[in-house]
Design a protein around this nucleic acid. Structure first.
Lengths: 146, 146
DNA sequence: CGCCGATTTAGATTTAATCTAAATCTATAT
DNA sequence: ATATAGATTTAGATTAAATCTAAATCGGCG
């Protein structure tokens, strides 16, 4: 297994997180296109190859990475929390049928919406809910052959 | 204890949820201004007075009410899910320091943002993250006496 | 190289949520 | 009002998720 890439190493250092191979492995898995994994899934994925990481370390890593802003917890339907890499901002769509969470291209809010009284807003995201394409999506009830 | 109010009874029937006293008690607690309670908190609150509800019933009720759209699960910091009554739409603000979730007045998204390809969007909400007023909020770093 | 504090580890523990099967309740028809 | 069928509630057991513990290891720095 190769060492931690310079690019990610930079991200770790900039975020003041010690770059360990385990943390790297966790982030690496989440970086795979559109993955919204649970801690358990990450644990299994990471342990299919080197370096390994115990369950506790996966949780610890997710916590460090989340605190650092490299990862964030996404809205989840089930009980187990799901995470994704948050290097690029994006919104989310949650399917009410299958529970799948999809990434939505980033867009800004109308000016002024980010000012919320005396609160300091550091980030935001829009969470859409509905029916995904695979579960029915558009075509409300057209083309039904019955 | 009085019976289920006509108003809520209507909401239950319209949503096709059988109006039981336990479900009413759960919703009633969430209706108290700005409450974002966990199942455990609702369980304790409900059991301080009649009618009582078992833990399982609190979970069952939350599930029915959520499916019916009378209640929704809010973004939560900790592990236990939190719920609020969703009779009126609103957005959320999550404090990264204390974990508190606050309601934000409703506003629409710029036209066109609700169309997400072949997905059918049924609802959405904006989740802001940052520091709440009590934890520091604005005044970035003014008045520090050091 | 050798030290110190941060990190990792396996397994136990705690906490949250679900399941089970029997008892009870609600809506509807009589 | 009473009977009936199916939904709901219940206490407690069970499963699943996340955290904790204390010892071993690692990474960065002198």
């Amino acid at each position: 297994m190769s060492s931690i890439s310079t690019e990610l190493r930079q991200a770790f250092l900039a975020a003041d997180v010690r770059p360990t191979v385990q943390r790297y492995a966790v982030l690496h898995h989440l970086l795979r296109d559109g993955v919204h994994a649970t801690a358990e899934e990450i644990f299994r994925a990471v342990n299919r190859q080197d370096p390994r990481a115990s369950r506790a370390t996966v949780y610890n890593s997710l916590k460090s990475l989340t605190r650092a802003g490299l990862v964030r917890e996404v809205i989840s339907e089930g009980k187990a929390a799901r995470y994704d890499a948050s290097l690029r901002p994006h919104h989310h769509f949650v399917c009410e049928r299958c529970g799948q969470v999809e990434d939505i291209a980033w867009f800004e809010l109308p000016a002024g919406k980010q000012a919320l009284g005396a609160r300091r807003v550091r980030s935001f995201e829009v969470v859409f809910r509905g029916v995904c394409e695979k579960c029915g999506g558009s075509q409300p009830r057209t083309g039904e052959t019955t």
